[in-house]
Amino acid sequence: MNELEDIKLKVLLQKLELEKPDNDFTLRVMNRVVVEDNALEQIKAQKVLGKGFWIILVLFVILLAAIFIMSQTGTAAEGTETVLPKLNSEMSQGINSVLGKMGMVPISVAGILIASSLLLFIDRFITSNTKMFV
């Protein structure tokens, strides 16, 4: 098959009338594009960490702070002139103390934390599945 015939075939095929979809085809595609966009936006808007997580975190920080303060009460009465030179050693002592007290957190406090976590988890689970029962 020579090149000229190939060119002629190309010219002939350029006259080919393609099949056409319905008139509203573009509109339907664009409607679906909008739906896809909205779905994507919803996924993006969903918070990875829920409210419950932040409540637990705040409670935990408060608990840590309380333990730390309680551990320092014995040394609070000391004179302020000795505070600055002792800062470094007190910092490390403080950290050690907090870590030490962590091991002695009363079972009741731990129980409260676990219970509140459980309640929050149940609350989230029920909320997320509400749609199933509507």
């Binding site: 393609l18 099949e19 056409k20 979809p21 085809f25 573009t26 595609v29 664009m30 594009v33």
Partner: peptide, 15 residues
Amino acid sequence: QYSYIVDKYKNIVFS
């Protein structure tokens, strides 16, 4: 702007 692309190629894609 995606509608321009759809309009341009819809016939050949559909064919």
